[in-house]
Design a protein around this nucleic acid. Structure first.
Length: 419
RNA sequence: GCGGAGUUGGUGAAGUGGUUAACACGCCGGAUUGUGGCUCCGGUAUGCAAGGGUUCGAUCCCCUUAUUCCGCCCCA
């Protein structure tokens, strides 16, 4: 038997119900915030991600799905959404009308060891805003995220926020960290020794070393921010307070993608028993990326969230999603003789915008009723010899189990009134 | 990429080196051939992730592979 590739899943049933629910709420919310939908390719030239996401990131250095197409071009399945959108903004000169507010949703691909909440093909949705450098917009997007989680019904969420400043302040902070950790290298774990070489900022959120002595008096990045970065960060917090959004400042929050500047934030599922993949949304500002990718100097800010993880969170909090997929009417021909009549009746009702299904296979009466239940039918229209002869239909309300006789000519009116 | 634990019908699962692989739910059929969801009766894995090995005999022991889950790494 051929089975699905590692780290993928088939979406159906319950999952689809939840997925569509999440997507609809996000779509509505983006409309309310005046954000337009954008759809970019699922694969792009490999170079885009090497430049856009960053050569040194794990995502690009060891997690991409790379392939050569038949024209010998290097292609990569997108591991995240931002780079492709930045490319599209530049290529289509969408920056002529700023600010530009875009949202997207779709599959992303990363070659990782799967776990619950971590797949090789997974879905992200997100927002990117170009051409607005203000701290208002940072706060605005965080408010959008928080509203989103509230609207889908999640309670246990926690917003963490930090500023990593501009490139210069980050570099001087990096130097300070190197100086600080150098004498303690032998106390730190193996991973942190590697991080010391590669990306010292990441030592800060190490789980193994977090309680060690040298972590307590570690330099803080806020002390290395320049005046404008400091002001920007303070203003973001001020606006969050103004909108009464709860957050915690986490000086150790550093993100794994190279393009961030100033504000970075994460939303965590803070739910009892939730797995270790508990970051359900994250984002930040990236003021240099558009220019770095060959466009004009346009500031930007954005976020993304992982749909599967949000679905996990909904399940962890036991939040039920209302499934209104039930049909309006199930047509039940009593015998083979009523099939023709039933088929045309079903077609007629569908033309009048009712959701209708029927028994096509002439199963037993018991099975027909069971099928009507399975489809969650509001009404069962029973068609037998008598009904056809008199042109009067028997309609059973599947909730109250009451049965009425309705003339065929009055059927539409009856259904309109009662559904 | 590293370490650990799993994989038994449609589902939840029990089980054993030896003739029929429990039990429950679901599904199908009958009691009840035009009214179901209750009850009763019957059916429902030629099969225990795949391949190989040990054995007279393997779902069970051994090896390999696939895959799921947990932790690390990383991240949504």
């Amino acid at each position: 038997m051929i089975q699905k590739p590692k780290g993928t899943y088939d979406g159906y049933g319950e999952f689809i119900t939840k997925y569509e629910y999440i997507k609809r709420i996000f779509n509505d919310l983006c409309n309310e915030y005046n954000i337009n939908y954008i759809d970019t390719p699922i694969f792009e030239s490999s170079e885009l991600y090497h430049r856009g996401v960053g050569e040194t990131t794990d995502i690009v250095s060891k997690e991409t799905y790379d392939f050569k197409d038949r024209g010998d071009r290097d292609m990569t399945l997108r591991p995240e959404g931002t780079a492709g959108i930045v490319r599209s903004v530049i290529e289509n000169k969408l920056y002529i009308n700023l600010p530009l507010k875009l949202w997207y949703e779709g599959p992303m691909f990363r070659y990782e060891r799967p776990q619950s909440g971590r797949y090789r093909q997974f879905r992200q949705a997100g927002v990117e805003v170009f051409g607005d450098p203000t701290p208002l917009m940072d706060a605005n997007l965080i408010s959008l995220m928080v509203k989103f989680y509230q609207r889908i019904g999640l309670k246990g969420i926690k917003v963490r926020i930090n500023s990593i400043g501009n490139k210069e302040s980050r570099e001087s902070y990096r130097d300070a960290l190197l100086k600080h950790f150098k004498p303690h290298l032998k106390d730190l774990c193996e991973d942190c020794n590697n991080r010391f070489e590669k990306n010292p900022l990441r030592i800060l959120d190490c789980k193994v070393d977090s309680n060690k002595e040298c972590m307590k008096n570690v330099p803080k990045i806020v002390d290395y921010l320049d005046e404008s970065s400091k002001k920007h960060f303070e203003d973001v917090l001020k606006y969050l307070d103004l909108m009464e959004i709860e957050y915690v400042i986490d000086n150790n929050l550093v993100r794994g993608l190279d393009y961030y500047t100033d504000t970075v934030f994460e939303v965590e599922a803070n739910i009892e028993g939730f797995g270790s993949q508990n970051v359900i949304g994250a984002g930040g500002r990236y003021n240099n990326l558009v220019e770095y990718m060959g466009g004009p100097s346009v500031p930007a800010v954005g976020f993304a969230f992982g749909i599967e993880r949000i679905i996990n969170a909904l399940e962890a909090e036991d939040i039920k999603v209302i499934d209104d997929k039930g049909i309006d009417a199930y047509i039940l021909p009593v015998s083979e003789n009523e099939m023709d009549y039933s088929l045309t009746l079903a077609s007629f009702l569908r033309d009048n915008a009712f959701k209708v299904d029927m028994d096509y296979t002439n199963k037993t009466m018991k099975a027909k009723f069971k099928e009507a239940d399975r489809y969650n039918a509001k009404f069962i229209v029973i068609i037998g010899e008598e009904e056809i002869k008199k042109d009067i239909l028997t309609i059973k309300d599947n909730l109250t189990k009451e049965e009425v006789k309705v003339e065929r000519d009055n059927l539409l009116d009856y259904l309109d009134i009662n559904i």
